[in-house]
Amino acid sequence: MPVSDKNRAPDPGFGLYYHWPFCRKKCPYCDFNSHVREAVDQSRWTAALLTELGWFSARVSPKRLTSIFFGGGTPSLMEPETVAALIDGAKRYFEFADDIEITLEANPTSVEAASFAAYRQAGVTRLSLGVQSMRDEALKFLGREHSVSEALNAIELARTHFSNISFDLIYALPGQTPAAWRSDLAEALSLAGDHFSLYQLTIEPNTGFAGAVRRGEFQVPPEDEAETLFEITQSVCVEAGWPAYEISNHARPGFECRHNLTYWRYGEYLGIGPGAHGRIVEAGVRTAYQQKKRPESWLAAVETDSHGTDIVAPLPSQEERAEEMLLMGLRLEEGVWHENFEAVIGAPMTRFIRRDRLDQLIEAGLMTEDAQRLRATTKGRLVLNSLLPEILV
């Protein structure tokens, strides 16, 4: 959600994430908690997800829900009745904001696109499409099941049902030239979208691509070439009126992803389902949760204990919370608001920052600061992981 008053800290919001861990196939670049299963009992899974939601709802103070996000896996493999039941279930436990954002990730295959109208009727307000590329040869390399033609048709169909659509693209592919990426990006920006997530291809451990790289089947572009593609991304998007509000995310003004802003603004959120992460304040302590990753293990635990929690990690120290909040918030163009920081951490930001080092980074054009907030510049966000250790006390 955009900030209406640029001198006032925004409400971080309170989010709910449902993880649907199932896919038709595993993409070779994907390291998400996704699994291929021949059959899924959706009624059983719906009951389990709602059981875990009920268990967590008793552990947070009453809050108004500002966003719901269906992620995966492939949430567009969910029956519309499943989605409707999970939205209705959330209403039993939480008050909904009048303008609640409810996002569902979807693959742009013709089969899954056929459910778009029913998802809208179920209560989904925002669709996020995994387009990934504007070129068929790249889609084949990435292991995607759809074609560019199917993606374009899915975008057009989505627009008839949703006033807020997003899609993902992956760049820095092997052999991708700056001219080719500029052309693909310009084509994508010409489509009727509201939000883009633009990610550089990274080779994650234990993925199909990791094995392919070890075998010498391909190599990703070197760092300097990838940086050139990133710079093209920023300049093309800015010229088109799609500034980066976060390192990899661009939106028309007013269409920033509210759910993800809750993460980056260090708000509270519940993570429901296999492998889901959550951050809530429980008994006055900010606590990180992670659920069991394997679907069958999670399901058995929920049906026995009402939840499938695998890891509980309280963050009692101000130093831990301060570092996490700065790491998340400095990804945003808006930066970290002093007002929000002190409200969450319980102490002013100045207590955790080395003033001399911050002044040097400001002088170098990597950070900025005013009375309201601390920000990393576009240049600084490129090297954020190395900036933070420099400024922390």
Rank of each mutant, 00 (worst) to 15 (best):
D5E: 15
S317Q: 12
D88C: 07
R182H: 11
K91F: 03
E79H: 15
V302H: 06
K140Y: 01
N33L: 10
S57M: 13
G308R: 07
H250I: 06
K293P: 01
L86V: 00
M78N: 02
P80I: 15
N33D: 09
Y263P: 02
D359N: 08
R159L: 09
R252L: 13
S57V: 14
T103G: 07
Y199S: 05
P174I: 09
W20G: 01
E339R: 14
H195K: 05
P21G: 08
M134F: 14
V148T: 10
D359F: 05
T228V: 15
G216E: 06
W181V: 12
S4W: 13
D41T: 12
P314K: 06
I155K: 04
K6N: 10
R144E: 03
E363M: 13
I280H: 04
F352I: 08
Q360T: 12
L315M: 15
V393P: 11
F32K: 05
F230T: 03
Y289R: 14
L388M: 05
R159V: 09
H307A: 11
P62Y: 04
L65G: 01
K63Q: 13
V3W: 03
L387G: 02
R286A: 10
F141L: 14
E363K: 15
F255W: 00
R279A: 08
L332W: 07
F56W: 12
L189W: 08
A276D: 02
E204I: 00
R159M: 12
V60L: 11
L49D: 05
I353N: 02
Y289Q: 08
T160I: 09
R331Q: 04
A371D: 09
G175A: 11
G15C: 02
E256A: 07
M1K: 06
R331I: 13
I272E: 02
Y29H: 09
K379S: 12
G275Y: 02
G71W: 10
E390I: 10
G278A: 15
R24C: 07
I232M: 03
E246R: 07
P28Q: 13
D356C: 04
R375C: 15
Y245F: 11
Y119W: 12
E52W: 01
F162Y: 08
P348V: 12
Y289D: 02
K140I: 15
R59W: 02
L129Y: 07
V238S: 12
K379N: 08
L326W: 00
A347F: 09
L152W: 08
N107I: 12
A117F: 02
P28L: 14
E246K: 10
P274W: 10
K379W: 08
A58E: 15
G211C: 01
H250G: 00
L65V: 09
D31H: 11
H277V: 06
E323M: 13
Y93W: 13
I353A: 04
A276C: 06
V60E: 03
T177L: 13
L152P: 01
V213P: 00
L358I: 03
R144W: 03
A371M: 09
G254L: 05
R354E: 04
K6M: 11
M328H: 01
E137I: 09
A122P: 11
L129E: 06
R144H: 04
L201F: 00
G211S: 10
L315T: 07
L387F: 02
C237V: 07
S4R: 15
S248Q: 10
M134H: 09
E145D: 11
F14I: 01
